[in-house]
Amino acid sequence: MVDVIATQHLTIGFGATRVVHRLSFSIAAGEVVALVGESGSGKSTVALSLMGLLGRSASVEGSIHLSRKNGETCDLLTLPERRLRAIRGNDLAMIFQEPMASLDPIYRIGAQITEALAVHRPMPQAALRTEALRLLRSVAIANPEACLSAYPHQLSGGQRQRVMIAIALSCQPRLLIADEPTTALDATIQAQIIDQLRQLRAETGMAVLFITHDLGLVREIADRVLVMYAGRIVESGPTEAVFGAPRMPYTAGLMRSRPRLFAETPVRIEPIPGNVPNPAHLPPGCAFHPRCAHSQPGRCDSGTPEPEACAPGHQVCCLRWREIVA
């Protein structure tokens, strides 16, 4: 399968502080990859860097190779801003966490849905309207005609997020980056939106990078999981493998700290002690060792673990993963 996007040693810093360290991952066409981790682990920073929206205060190194719809492959980090704009919204689309704030309050939905189309492929008003209706239907909005002429404040949160998805889909992107798209929504709406995303993926064959800290959702939607901690990917692999047999103590901790409604025997939620470290003062060695029950003095606090394959397609960053398994 062709990789839609592949990063190599992606390193992001703000001033002297590095928040993302040598991140390498790839997403194949039609694949849903979940990026999980606690707040502050650098997930959203990665998403914005893929879009090239980090701003001038960030320094980004490494490479991000995107294979475009027109067949060309380019490194997003070396492209000039003018060419990046042609890619944003067109090959790469993003939906944000807050559907409330992502729509301009003064425009009707119809005008906003076709904004990306209007930017990338100018066409007559009537064609834009037809396209807007088609997009609204594709995200299963009830009564799309009425929705076209509604203002954002007249829609519910779930409707707004559907509209945001419709906007993101308008140019048929190769990769959709969804940054916690359901965090601000009710659980029932959340399930509908996830279903919608899954269905759209099947219909359009686009790849999805799904950023979340909700592990239940990951299991529902993702083919592959990347677990981030303190700016590094500490474990990655097929969803079933990572959930079934987490190798990195941090991933295992995340699993234990998630509420399980339908467990056969009642399970206690075990939070991971401590907090995500400040990126300006990362602990030496493995960044997770101060919070890790398995850390060994003299070993985990000195050597930085490199990714190792523990099963086909399943990589882990832990010096002791073999011993912990045994």
Binding site: A86, I87, R88, A93, M94, A101, S102, V119, M164, I167
Partner: peptide, 14 residues
């Protein structure tokens, strides 16, 4: 700084 401006930027607007 509003999110809808960020969203417009993400849609490729300058």
């Amino acid at each position: 700084e509003a999110l809808f401006v960020e969203a417009a930027r993400a849609a490729g607007a300058d």
